[in-house]
Every structure is written in C-alpha cells, then in structure tokens.
C-alpha cells in the first residue's frame, strides 16, 4: 500500500462529492417590508434559494413539518432544495408573509 494509492483514492472520493450538477443555480428572494419577491419562484432539485432580508426584523421561511429557515435582520440565509414539489412557505413571526417555490425534479 503506497501513499500514492491513498491519495488517488482520496481524490476519487472528493471528485465524486464535487461532481454536483453543473446547472444548479442560486435563486435570490429579496425581503422588503414584509414581502417576499418574487413571491413565486421556479427551481430544480439541487438549486439553492437565498433569502436576502432588507428588513430590520428577523423573518423565517417555513414550511410546516418541513423546513424552517431563520433569516436574521439585514442578513441572508440559504436553503438547498432537496425534493421536488410545490411548497407554500410563510414567516412564523409574521404569518401574513407568504411565498411559493415550485421545485422540479433534477
């Protein structure tokens, strides 16, 4: 067993982890004055949603029983989309804030 072989195996594993689909993209949803915009986004499994919070308040992007993303005041937060479907999300702190993400299979 040479060191070289370990290194090779290691490279193969890392390479495998890194071979994410090239089309995966980041989609921004801006929060301004308690509004998610765009309100509805279309994405694919593997894409990332980035919420950019311009408000002085913390918000969440929550799907009951599924995800709960905390978005601090004046900060951003991300979520990698793992499964296909149509998801209505809302803010737990201000349930009048609503958005939707339609996720297609990869």
């Amino acid at each position: 067993m040479s060191l070289g072989r370990y290194a090779f195996a290691f490279l193969v594993i890392v390479g495998g982890v890194n071979s994410a689909p090239v089309h995966a993209k980041t989609i921004q949803v801006v929060i301004d004055k308690l509004v998610f915009s765009p309100t509805q986004v279309n994405a694919k499994v593997g894409d990332t949603i980035e919420w950019v919070n311009g408000d002085i308040l913390a918000h969440t992007a929550t799907v009951r029983g599924d995800w709960d993303v905390m978005i601090a005041a004046k900060k951003s937060a991300t979520l990698v989309l793992k499964k296909a479907g149509s998801f209505e999300y809302y803010c737990r702190f201000h349930p009048n804030m609503k958005g939707q993400i339609v996720i297609e299979p990869e």
């Binding site: 004055k33 308690l34 308040l57 803010c91 737990r92 702190f93 201000h94 349930p95 009048n96 804030m97």
Partner: peptide
C-alpha cells in the same frame, strides 16, 4: 410597514 408587522403579530397571536 408597522401595520403589516402588527397584522403579522395579530395572526401570530391567533396561532
């Protein structure tokens, strides 16, 4: 904006 926030709080309190 305050009205939107407080409407959110009202719903939150109802929940």
């Amino acid at each position: 904006t305050g009205l939107k926030i407080f409407q959110g709080h009202e719903q939150h309190a109802e929940h």
